[in-house]
Amino acid sequence: MILGEFIINTLSLGSMYALVALGLVFVYGILKLVNFAYGEYVMVGGYTLYVLGTFTPVPWLAVMIIAVLMAAATSYLTELVAFRPVRTKSLDAMLVTSFAVSVLLQNAVLLLVSPRSRAVPLPAIFSQSVAIFGVVTPMRNVLTIVTAVLLLTGLTLLMKYTVLGIAMRAAADKFTTTRLMGVPANLVISVAFIISGFLAGVVSVFWVGRSASVDPLIGFTPLLIAFIATVIGGMNSLVGAVVGGFAYGLLFNALSILLPASLISYRDAFMFAIVILFLLLKPEGLIRGNYTEERVG
């Protein structure tokens, strides 16, 4: 049964990490921007859960949907206000801008809410347990996996069978040529940011669903995980991000079990050391992807 538990835990963790990574790569694929503000979209989702869940009688399902929408809206807004004006000027400027946006959002919450963490009331369904194939597991694990499967299917359909999806894949491949097809650059980029924020919002629900609290730094770990997972999977492919997410979930769970207790506090360092080694040996990641390195200008 331990194996069964390990598998379900890994799948659930991997599902969440896959969504985290996918959100980052959606923007990276098109803009070649490593968006340091990405974790803050998760934070915005988390604080929406906290505020609406604590102070309003809005039903839980609606709260979650609003949280996801808020994250997507924040992502879109940062694109509009901060990234769009610097986009055509320099990739480095955009990278630094994303870090500044991250610091700004984090400290805005620090200023407006509190530096201390806040408890988020959760619906009962998150803490209930179910038995699947004889394995008892928290309901939220099952919810995570189901949501991830649904979202990944939906996104696959979107990317494969809609014009918008085709245009987004084309833009990630050759941005300028895509514009020469008449596809507006702003449209593609905005949609990428909205999807990215949407995924961050979904992640925020499950992230907070595990910890039942939010704090201004809550976005940091998802950001790191997105970095690691995309690096493992390959920065230039959406499939790679998903694969990387699951690979990271597996690595994390395996290290948690295998590392002796005295070294567990070094787990993050181990994770990163593995990632750095991995990068040095295989900089293109597990899935090579066929996007070019073209800059947006």
């Binding site: 946006v101 620090l110 201004p216």
Partner: peptide, 25 residues
């Protein structure tokens, strides 16, 4: 009524974004 934290960071970040938009170099 409450303690103020993070004002410096907010201001510095805003300054940085403004300058990058205005003069990316």
């Amino acid at each position: 009524a409450f303690d103020v934290y993070g004002l410096t960071e907010v201001a510095v970040a805003l300054l940085m974004i403004t300058i990058l938009i205005w003069r990316p170099g």
